[in-house]
Amino acid sequence: MEVMIKIEKLSKYYGKGGSIKAVDNLSLEVYKGETFGFLGPNGAGKTTTVRMLNCIIKSTNGSASVYGFDINKDSENVKKVTGLLAESPGLYDKLSAYEFLEFIGALYDVPDDMLKVRSENLLNLFGLKARSDHLLEGYSRGMKQKVLLAAALIHDPPILFLDEPTSTLDPKASHMVKDLVKDLADKAEKTIFLCSHILPVVEELCDRIGIISDGRLIAVGTIDDIIKRSGKSTLEEAYIALTGGVDERELLSWREQGDAKA
C-alpha cells in the first residue's frame, strides 16, 4: 500500500523548556485511498497535528512527509497537494460564495476555465447555486461549512484534511457529505484524514482510526481491532475507556445544601 502521510516521532511543545506537550512523539502512517479517523478529547492535539501536517505551524521535533514531500523542507508542495477544512476557519464575509471559491482556486493556481466550471459544479453539488451571488455574511453556519468544504476541494487535491466536516450540517447535508467522502476515497482514491467527535460518522466512514490523548497516540488500528483490544463492545465505550473513563461523581450531588438555609 502506498503511504501518503508518514509521521515519525512528530512533536510540538510550547512554554518554557517545552513544558506543554501539545503533540508528543507521534508516529503514524496513512495509506492511499484510505479514510483515516483521528479522534481525541478536546485539547488532545488533533488540530495541532493537522496544522503541522499542513505546514501552518512548525514542529518542535520529528518529521513527516505528505505525498512524499517533507513538511519541514518542502512546504510549498505539501500545501499544493492537500485540501484543508479547518476546525474554525475564517471566511471572507464580504465575498459571495462564487467569489470565495474563485479566490481560493486562484491561490492554488487552478486554471481560469477549469476554476469557473469547478466552482459552479461544487456550488451545485452543495445546493448553493441559487445563492452563489449572495455575500457569505448572510449564510447560515451550515451553508458556510459547505462553502468551506467546497473550497477545500476546489483544486482537487489527492489528500484531504477534514476537521469536523459534518458538525454544523443538517441531516440531509450531513448525509450528502458522508456520501461524498466515501466516493472521494473509494472512486477517486483520495486519502482522507478526518478529525471528528461524532463517533457514528467515524464508524461509518473510516477504514482505520487513531486515538490521541494528551498529545500522545494511544491507539491505532481498525475500529474492530480497537474495540477488541479495549475489551469493550462499542467504539464509544472503547474511546471512553482509552481516554480516561467517566467521572464517577454522584450526578445529583450539586443539590445538597450543606449548612445553607433555603
Binding site: 496544522r51 501552518i56 500545501k79 479547518a86 474554525s88 475564517g90 471566511l91
Partner: peptide, 14 residues
C-alpha cells in the same frame, strides 16, 4: 482584530 483567515491563507501555497 481578526486572525481567523490566517489559517486559510497559511494552508495555501503562498
Amino acid at each position: 482584530i481578526d486572525t481567523s483567515q490566517t489559517e486559510l491563507l497559511l494552508s495555501s501555497p503562498i
